[in-house]
Simulated scan of single mutants.
Amino acid sequence: MTSAADRASAVELIDEARANGARLKKACAELRIAQNTYRRWKAGTEDQRPYAERPTPSHKLSAEERRHVLDLCHRPEYASLPPAQIVLRLADDHQVYVASERTFYRILHEHNEQHHRGPKAAPQPPRPKPTLCADRPNRCWSWDVTYLPTAIRGQFFYLYLIIDLYSR
């Protein structure tokens, strides 16, 4: 949403451009807004979206149901499992559907419990690749194979290159 001050500034800039001979379409395109948006902003009506009533969805879980989801995730048999497996095991073993997988993730995230869940260690950041550093001659060798084209189509020369890397 664009603030009222930014809207007024945009309308002022477009009005100035139009007074100097610019077309409305070009002036609006310069600010990346539609012509209808400019007209609505010029009318001066305030954006009512922040004040709109947003009713609670009828299918939203109650506080008790959310607590039940957390209790299920804290059980020893489910403590190390991700929500995807918890939902499946509840359905398979107990024929119970408490909430969707996404709802499990959302509730765990709200309670700051959505971290690595499982028997394995958390993933580690990749280690930097080792760099070659030769401190004296014949210490670090490298090789490469390069294909060199010839005048004959489909025929190549193979260049084997062995390099002795050393620091100076």
Rank of each mutant, 00 (worst) to 15 (best):
Q85W: 08
E101L: 09
T45E: 13
L81D: 02
R54M: 13
A43I: 10
E77A: 03
W41E: 01
R40P: 01
L72S: 00
R40F: 04
V69R: 01
Y97P: 04
H59F: 14
A122C: 10
Q85V: 12
H111K: 14
D93L: 12
P50D: 01
E110C: 09
T45L: 13
S80M: 09
S62W: 02
A63P: 03
S62Q: 02
S58E: 07
S80K: 04
T56L: 14
L108P: 07
E101W: 05
K60I: 08
P50S: 05
H111D: 14
E101Q: 13
G44R: 00
F104Y: 06
S58V: 06
R89V: 02
H111E: 15
A122E: 11
P76T: 08
L61I: 08
A121C: 10
T45V: 12
R117E: 01
I86K: 01
R89E: 12
A43R: 14
Q85S: 10
L72M: 08
V69S: 02
P76R: 07
K60A: 15
Y105E: 12
L81S: 00
A99L: 08
R106F: 11
E64Y: 03
H116F: 14
A84D: 10
E65M: 14
H116A: 09
H68G: 08
A52Q: 12
D93S: 11
E64I: 11
L108S: 14
V98Y: 00
Q85A: 13
H115Q: 11
P83A: 06
H111Y: 12
Q114W: 12
R66H: 11
A43L: 15
C73N: 00
A99Y: 00
L88A: 15
H116W: 12
H116M: 09
E65C: 08
H59Y: 15
D71Q: 11
S58K: 05
D93F: 05
E46G: 13
N112T: 03
E113N: 05
K120M: 02
Y78C: 09
N112L: 10
D71M: 10
H59G: 13
A84C: 10
Y51C: 09
V87C: 05
E46L: 14
E113V: 05
S58D: 07
Q85I: 11
K42L: 13
A43C: 13
R89Y: 04
N112C: 06
G44V: 02
S58Y: 03
A99G: 04
S58P: 00
R40D: 09
G44C: 03
A63V: 12
E64W: 01
Q48G: 01
S80E: 04
H74N: 14
Q95P: 02
H68L: 14
A99T: 06
H68P: 00
A121T: 07
F104E: 04
A99N: 05
S80I: 02
A43F: 10
A63D: 11
L88T: 07
K42A: 04
E65W: 04
A91Q: 15
H94N: 08
R67D: 07
L81P: 00
P57M: 09
S80C: 04
Q114Y: 13
S100M: 11
P83I: 03
H68I: 10
T56N: 08
P83N: 06
H59L: 15
A122S: 12
D71N: 14
V69E: 04
H116C: 11
D93A: 12
G118V: 01
A91P: 02
A63F: 07
L61N: 04
H115F: 05
C73K: 00
R67P: 00
